[in-house]
Design a binder for these strands. Structure first.
Lengths: 259, 259
DNA sequence: AGAGTGTACCGTACATTGTACGGCTCAGGT
DNA sequence: ACCTGAGCCGTACAATGTACGGTACACTCT
């Protein structure tokens, strides 16, 4: 990173901002809300690392340093952005638990919703230390996602673990998808073009020791032909989720058998 | 980010570097190998974003720009670093499949090994577009991790999907763990201190609408008391892995039943 | 109405980054 | 002995986050 020390975001300051009722328009109409909105728009198109305070200020027709009267720094700003887009997932905290299909349907719904935000705002993956952004919206999201898991015989810790497992899967897969997309954008090459571009180099080196790469060659080729790419994010998401939910099902069955 | 355009790493250039046999000491003893080693050491202690070309050069007692005779840029350097630490996991490609416990034991071993690298080199999470770093070491790693999955009745695509599922879980959990650690280092507060620090603020705001945060409060508290923290990476890893392998077990049983 | 005061706003400056560019200095071949 | 090419590097530049100190406005109190 560049610039001055970039002073690690102050958790307490972020918290205050998150929970506070900041609604004081100021004399040129500048608001925390407006700043965060502008920043989110910028990040959606260009990514988090391309987001600069100068850009945000310019978009708002405001001097760069004016932002600092409303937001302590870039770190806290990204915390706010995170809370903004990520804490707005559900209309009400019972939306997931009202889905059909019981806990399984609910978790599938949750995975789907999370997937949607993550693909709409890929910069979320670059937000450091999501711990600081524990605002009201995020907490409400947590509440909503826990509800379908209540009353199944799971302990509190197990409920949290199950949820974390599903969310980690979605997050990790979305991240891989985002990186794939970014590679394509940056290089200007589609996934397929890239593959055919490096394929000869790869093949020539592998040829010397085909037995050492027996499975890697076979499976890699199969996957490439099947998805026209090195990976298919959608397939990875659903395949993984199915296995995970199957495993969770066994746990739940075990717990209710005991009782 | 700062500096000049930072010219997106050239995949072909990275590949050549990765597969090539670069071993020409030059007149001041500077080598690609030495550069990568120095960079890895730096990144291990300070993270990827604190790693600068000037730092690497200084550590090697060399002018900054001399690095550019061996490495095209920072992007390709991180690709090389990635290949270096991540492609060195197994002594030989049969190590995972020789583990006791069949495919399940092998996958547990694989997860463990990956976990170890990721916690030793947390900067791996910050390496962008791991696609470019498809070197010989990485390919060998892929081979080694596929072998225990061969001959179980799974299709090639399924083998890849299962492996990806396990690795995504490990990667995601390790990433969460790394962020937790980084937060602690940066703020100087331990996880527990942080929690007790913001707890009153949280409680006071939640108090106004306790029913809206019914489960979030209860479960969050349980988790906090059980782990003395907002999460326990080790527990998340093993809990998740157990569910995932249970789910994979069902798939494998299904496949062998058909045959 | 007039004066005073706090705060929103912002212009400038600085440290730090990646790397383009052009020059210097050697090792090795002829 | 000289030329050539490559390794090495000093300087310059554009971009970053933000510290600092100044300006100008909205509001309160008399």
């Amino acid at each position: 990173m560049a610039g001055r020390k970039a002073a690690a975001p102050d958790p307490a300051r972020s918290l205050a901002l998150l929970w506070g009722s900041h609604a004081k328009p100021g004399r040129s109409g500048l608001t925390v809300r407006a700043i965060v909105d502008a920043a989110v728009e910028l990040a959606d198109t260009d990514g988090l690392e391309a987001l600069s305070m100068r850009m945000v200020a310019e978009r708002l027709k405001v001097g760069t340093m004016s932002l600092y009267t409303h937001v302590p720094g870039k770190g806290e700003l990204t915390d706010l952005m995170f809370d903004r887009v990520y804490g707005d997932l559900y209309a009400d905290p019972d939306e997931p638990s009202k889905q059909p299909g019981g806990w399984r349907g609910a978790l599938e719904f949750i995975a789907q919703r999370n997937w949607e935000v993550l693909t709409a705002h890929p910069w979320i993956h670059e937000v450091p230390a999501a711990r600081n952004a524990l605002g009201p919206n995020i907490t409400l999201k947590y509440e909503a996602e826990l509800r379908p898991l209540d009353g199944l015989g799971l302990s509190d810790v197990e409920m949290d673990s199950v949820l974390a497992l599903v969310l980690t899967h979605v997050l990790g897969t979305a991240r891989a998808a985002a990186e794939q997309l970014r590679s394509q954008r940056e290089s200007g090459l589609s996934d397929q073009e890239w593959w055919t571009g490096i394929s000869p180099t790869l093949a020539s080196v592998m040829a010397g020791a085909a037995d050492r790469f027996r499975l890697a060659g076979r499976v890699g080729t199969s996957v490439g032909e099947h998805f026209q790419s090195a990976m298919d994010p959608g397939h990875a998401l659903s395949f993984g989720l199915t296995r995970i939910l199957d495993g969770v099902g066994l746990l739940i069955a075990e717990r209710s058998a005991v009782e």
